[in-house]
Computed example of a mutant assay.
Amino acid sequence: MTASPPRYSRILGTGSYLPPKRLTNADLAAQLAADGIETSDEWIIERTGIRARHFADEGVTASDLALPAARAALEAAGMTAEQIDLIIVATSTPDMIFPSTATLLQHKLGVHGCAAFDVQAVCSGFVYALTVADSMIKSGAASKALVIGSEVFSRILDFKDRTTCVLFGDGAGAVVLGASKEPGILAADLHADGRHANILCTPGTVAGGKVIGDPLLKMDGQAVFKLAVGVLEKVARAVLDKAGRSEADIDWLIPHQANIRIMQGTAKKLKMPLDKLIVTVDEHGNTSAASIPLALDVAVRSGKVRRGDTVMLEGVGGGFTWGAVLLDF
């Protein structure tokens, strides 16, 4: 018998969406000042590189943000929602406890029947979801997947804590991943370490009709920074080793958009010029699982990332989770 040719997956299209409400640092500082919390544009930029972020209006959910991002990715891929046979949504701010945000998005897309589920790995969520979709396509379990990161982090922020509430924003990013005879996703590497759960978490839950614990985000910024810089370099090198590539082969680095100092530090450790680092954190803030696909779509639509480019995606987030994907776009 003739062996079947290898089956790979490639990104066929990208899309993104930001809610219309844009808050500059000055806007947010004025809002906080009304509650006696002091901060400033200079203080935020110096520590994070963030200048603005987008917040969803009341009642707008993660699936609402995911819908236009998904439609944009489908249009870019030249496909309809009916052709998708797998939907994965990475989110830490789902519409409800269940069903999954992915199934709610599926309904809003007007399709039914295909597999749909959520992945929860916080800011690493999109890298995790993309890796799962790639594995399912390679195995033959799916042929065309819609992979989305969508977050409404503004709902879980403590606006009495200026060290965290200035960091995050809302948005969604999406890709269509399809089966291919040529490699697209070259390698992936995922990790987690629950020993560090307490340094970045939202420790509340719902039981008996009540919120149990604290439903607002908590973060030890210094501990997260220290851990993130170390693991991002290691996971990037692990993916390069798996793919048989070197740092010199990377055309673009698209890290999780959390903090400009972490991002630039990772680029320098990989000996990459900073002009090969895709940066959207200045305008989007930290959109958690949405940040990587948002940045990828911005880079593609601006003409920076082009077909044939080699791209490194990497994320780190609460859990503690981290991972990277190397792909030929």
Rank of each mutant, 00 (worst) to 15 (best):
A179Y: 02
P183W: 00
T93Q: 08
V325E: 07
E82L: 00
Q257T: 07
V175I: 12
A33S: 15
G204P: 03
R7P: 00
L253F: 14
I11H: 06
I45P: 00
Q106F: 09
A133S: 04
P203F: 04
A33I: 12
D193K: 09
D249K: 07
I11T: 06
I260Q: 12
L200C: 14
F55G: 05
D158T: 06
K269Y: 03
V325K: 05
G110M: 13
T101L: 01
F153V: 15
A142P: 05
C114S: 13
G125N: 10
Q264L: 00
T101Q: 04
L74Q: 12
L270I: 04
P273C: 09
D189N: 15
T2Y: 00
R22H: 02
A141S: 14
G173I: 03
A26V: 14
D328C: 12
A26N: 12
V305K: 07
L270P: 07
D214S: 14
V224Y: 04
I262Y: 01
V281T: 05
H191F: 11
V211F: 00
R10P: 01
E38M: 09
T101C: 00
G323D: 08
V132M: 12
I50G: 04
F55R: 13
A102F: 01
I88Y: 00
E82R: 15
F153H: 13
G230H: 10
I88T: 02
S291Q: 13
L277V: 05
I212F: 05
D282S: 13
